[in-house]
């Protein structure tokens, strides 16, 4: 059985990518399970998609914790614990990552010798996370790594899953998928399937038995206001706004009221971005009259934030 886990962010098309790969497997005569997983969060939040495929009926259920292939559409997810990219990463697994960095860099960074394959980011794209049709590229690359999903099964699956998107979008997705398929020729068939889990190997988890308090009424009441600030939605950001204070006119009422997420505070008359909660929509960048706010890919943002904060201190 093949177990494939996709990691991406809401809006990057991972749900569709999982479906396309599932359908492509199906077109090759496999039994397939595919399911996305996401919470109440929206665009930018980490999401997962799971595909299982086997020539025999699949009895396994639920999320995939022991993947044969992990696909990461956005390398900024690796640092986010909630994204669970590393979950169940074993020597057997292959990690396909969309990145500007090399496989070696990733191996060193993660302290692992596992097989890491880089799907290179097109250098003309300013924000790697916004690479167009990234889901299709991931599926095309995955098909080649698996070695059992051919080009025509792949193309048919894209047509089937995107049928209401119109011919232009279908074509662009096919092109991206086939380009990635081609690119991965060197790594064909490097993902190996493993036996389906046997019920005999099942280990019961250690259940925790909660102790109930005596209560007359129980309801999920929130007793304090403003608790949402504890959620660090800044982690969803793929692009980071940086204020260049030398150019800032201090017209705070523009950026601060425009920010949909309330992530621009006003200190005196100086706008200060709350990076814990800026989700990276770039509305401020579009609104700032003197163009004092620029958009930097998140991976390069740390030093720019520091510079901006130093400017502010002066």
């Amino acid at each position: 059985m093949y177990r494939i886990r996709f990691h991406g962010r809401g809006g990057q098309g991972m749900k569709t990518a999982g479906r396309i790969l599932g359908t492509a497997f199906f077109n090759e005569g496999y039994e397939v399970q595919d399911a996305p997983r996401y919470g109440a969060e929206r665009r930018g939040a980490p999401i997962f998609s799971y595909v299982r495929a086997d020539k025999k009926p699949i009895d396994e259920r639920g999320i995939i914790t022991n993947p044969d292939l992990i696909i990461v559409a956005d390398d900024s997810l690796v640092n986010i614990p909630a994204a669970g990219v590393m979950q169940g990463l074993n020597e057997h697994a292959v990690l396909l990552i969309n990145s500007r960095e090399t496989a070696e860099t990733w191996q060193n960074r993660l302290g692992t010798k596992i097989n890491i394959i880089v799907l290179p980011v097109n250098s003309s794209v300013p924000n790697p996370a916004e690479m167009p049709f990234i889901g299709a590229a991931c599926v095309g690359a995955a098909a080649r790594l698996l070695g059992v999903v051919g080009q025509s099964a792949l193309v048919d699956a894209i047509h089937e899953e995107l049928q209401d998107q119109g011919p232009d979008i279908i074509k662009a997705n096919c092109d991206r998928a086939l380009e990635a398929f081609e690119y991965m020729a060197l790594y064909e068939n490097c993902v190996q399937q493993r036996q389906a889990a046997s019920a005999l190997d099942y280990q019961q988890p250690e259940w925790i038995r909660p102790v109930f308090e005596k209560a007359r009424i129980a309801a999920p009441t929130i007793h304090a206001g403003l608790t949402s600030v504890q959620v660090k939605t800044g982690l969803w950001r793929t692009l980071c706004p940086i204020i260049e204070y030398d150019r800032c006119n201090r017209c705070w009422w523009i950026c601060s009221s425009a920010c949909p997420h309330n992530a621009i505070n006003v200190d005196g008359s100086t706008p200060v971005i709350d990076y814990d909660h800026c989700v990276g929509c770039m509305v401020c960048v579009a609104q700032c009259p003197p163009h004092a706010i620029s958009a930097i890919p998140e991976a390069e943002a740390d030093s720019e934030i520091k510079k901006s904060m130093q400017q502010l201190a002066h």
Partner: peptide, 14 residues
């Protein structure tokens, strides 16, 4: 210039 609604909500960017 100060905003009442808390940050950290799960609405889409933008």
């Amino acid at each position: 210039s100060t905003h009442l609604l808390g940050t950290g909500t799960p609405m889409c960017a933008g």
